[in-house]
């Protein structure tokens, strides 16, 4: 579903990704781990098409299509979803209003009729259960005054409603207490299916106790230096990132 080859990306002339390659198939969950500054968030943002990231070389293919020239909204409508590390507050814009506009933008793109308020609310109520979203959050301004946990839950809730094919979760576990983490993880697990791929970007392996990945990749200094299964994450937790860096250098 997603193929990245030799991706090189610079931000303000500074090279962040230095030849990253990754292949993710439908139905798989991949975890990208790495220390701060290794390029994890850059990868997430580049996949979503954020401006300010200069791709100097490499290929990103989604469903066998090069997505380089696609605007962020076009990528989103094709099923790429980014759960933000720091979801932004948009004062005065109703949370559910934004979501309805998003759902209908995707539907129009697919040539489906727009949902009316009644049908939309039906879906919303169903999906709210998934992430145990508090109903009062629906009619508040987007992320405004939400706690850290509420913001992250809102991201997963949006993901549940939008039903993307490729979901990238950027440090969704950061800033969550253990209860909130469990709820978010449960939500993500129910959204796992054979048609959907999920890329988890995370610093700690804690999240992976609840969402068990098919593959774990270690990103360091702009490259994936080691890949493995769930066991790799546990090893990392025990030995730290320095161990793997040394191993990579030795190899």
């Amino acid at each position: 579903m997603l193929t990245i080859e030799n991706l090189q990306v610079s931000v303000e002339k500074k090279q962040i990704l230095k030849g990253l390659s990754l292949a993710v198939q439908a139905g798989e969950v991949h975890a990208i781990m790495g220390p701060n500054g290794s390029g994890k968030s850059t990868l997430a943002n580049v996949l979503a098409g954020r401006e300010g990231y200069e791709v100097t070389s490499g290929i990103i293919k989604y469903d066998d299509q090069d997505i380089f020239d696609l605007a962020p909204e076009e990528r989103a409508r094709k099923g790429i979803f980014l759960a933000f590390q720091y979801p932004v507050e948009i004062p005065g814009v109703n949370n559910i209003y934004l979501l309805k506009a998003a759902v209908n933008a995707v539907r129009v793109h697919r040539g489906e009729p727009e949902l009316d308020a009644v049908d939309f609310l039906k879906i919303v109520r169903e999906k709210m259960q998934l992430v145990k979203m508090d109903e009062s959050l629906l009619n508040r301004s987007v992320n405004e005054g939400f706690s850290g946990g509420e913001k992250k839950r809102n991201e997963i809730f949006q993901m549940a409603v939008l039903e993307p094919r490729l979901a990238i979760l950027d440090e969704t576990d950061s800033g969550l207490d253990i209860d909130a983490l469990k709820i978010v993880a449960e939500g993500v697990n129910t959204l796992r299916n054979e048609n959907r791929a999920i890329v988890l970007v995370t610093h700690y392996q804690r999240l992976l106790e609840y969402i068990v990945p098919d593959q774990v990749h270690v990103l360091s200094d702009g490259r994936i230096i080691k890949s493995g299964d769930r066991g790799l994450a546990i090893e990392l937790e025990e030995k730290g990132y320095d161990w793997i860096k040394q191993e990579a250098r030795a190899a």
Partner: peptide, 9 residues
């Protein structure tokens, strides 16, 4: 970017 990432132009 947040809005556009959700598919809104």
């Amino acid at each position: 970017f947040y809005c556009r990432q959700r598919g809104i132009d």
